[in-house]
Amino acid sequence: MSGKLNVEKIVPYTESKLSKKEQIATMFDDIAHRYDFLNHFMSLGIDIIWRKKALGYLKSLQPKKMLDVATGTGDFAIMAAKRLHPDHITGIDISEGMLSHGREKIEKAGLAKQISLQLGDSETISFPDKTFDAITVAFGVRNFENLHKGLQEMNRVLKPGGKLVILEFSNPTVFPIKQFYNLYFRYITPLFGKWIAKSQAAYSYLPESVKAFPQGEEMCNILKNTGFQAVTCKTLTFGICSIYVASY
């Protein structure tokens, strides 16, 4: 069985009868108030460097109209607005709790005219074909209930010549980074989640979903099979994170 199918079966609340999509929305609603802090705290701020590197792949494109899928609290959208200066960025997410925090951040940053956040599902994107110059997803594709469908939808709304940039966790293979990473993710991350965000389930789900997610060549092949071209993968920080870039 492929990693793609495995990751679609990984859910935050194993005893729940809700769909993965519904569980993910509930999970992020619950941790929205501490999500940004935990992201930066647990990655020692390296996640900010990763985001900057990912957006660097769009600099030459100079996109005017962008879509940020699984936007969460809008961190990636805000950074994109400041670094790429597009005319407009639309952020979509299935968690209203995350979007609410994101709107407050955008208002505070003075970017309300440039960025709009709305409730939206990656598998049924409510925009016409060929709408966006660029699409970004930061740490969100492994949460899709149906990975292929989500990628196909992003391909549909991307303009010819446009680019998709995906930033996602991956599993390092180099000793001793692999061993430390596994220890940190499996035992320490859930403790931080329990103490700080009051949700051990959310941060136990994180390492399981990363472990099951297709990576490297496998993910590149999935992107190609959903209609993308010129697909590349760049690993960062000893393979802890990967950037996938694809064109329409």
Rank of each mutant, 00 (worst) to 15 (best):
M1L: 10
G3D: 09
L5M: 12
L5Y: 10
K9L: 15
T14G: 08
S16P: 06
K17E: 03
L18E: 07
L18G: 05
E22M: 09
A25Y: 09
T26W: 15
M27W: 09
F28T: 08
D29I: 04
D29W: 02
I31E: 06
H33N: 10
D36H: 05
H40S: 11
I46A: 14
D47E: 05
I48E: 12
I48C: 11
I48N: 07
W50Q: 04
W50N: 06
L55S: 14
G56P: 06
Y57V: 00
S60Q: 10
L61S: 00
K64I: 05
K65T: 05
D68V: 07
T71M: 04
T73C: 02
G74I: 01
D75W: 02
D75A: 03
M79G: 09
R83K: 15
I92L: 03
D93N: 06
G97W: 09
G97M: 14
L99Q: 01
H101V: 03
I106G: 08
E107W: 01
K108W: 02
A109I: 03
L111S: 00
K113D: 12
I115G: 02
L117G: 06
L119H: 15
E123C: 15
E123T: 13
T124Y: 13
I125E: 02
S126H: 10
P128F: 10
P128I: 14
D129I: 06
D129K: 02
F132E: 15
F132S: 12
T136V: 12
A138R: 03
R142P: 00
N146H: 09
L147A: 15
L147C: 12
G150N: 04
G150R: 00
R156W: 14
V157C: 11
L158W: 11
K159G: 06
G161Y: 14
G161V: 14
G161H: 13
K163M: 10
L164A: 01
F169A: 11
F169P: 04
N171Y: 07
P172I: 04
F175N: 13
K178C: 06
Q179S: 13
Q179H: 09
F180D: 08
F180I: 13
Y184V: 07
Y187Q: 00
I188P: 09
T189S: 12
P190Q: 11
P190L: 11
L191W: 05
I196T: 01
I196N: 01
A197M: 02
Q200C: 03
A201F: 00
Y203L: 06
K211I: 10
K211R: 15
Q215L: 12
G227A: 10
F228P: 12
V231C: 04
V231H: 06
F238T: 09
F238H: 11
G239S: 12
I243E: 15
I243G: 11
I243C: 14
V245N: 06
V245D: 08
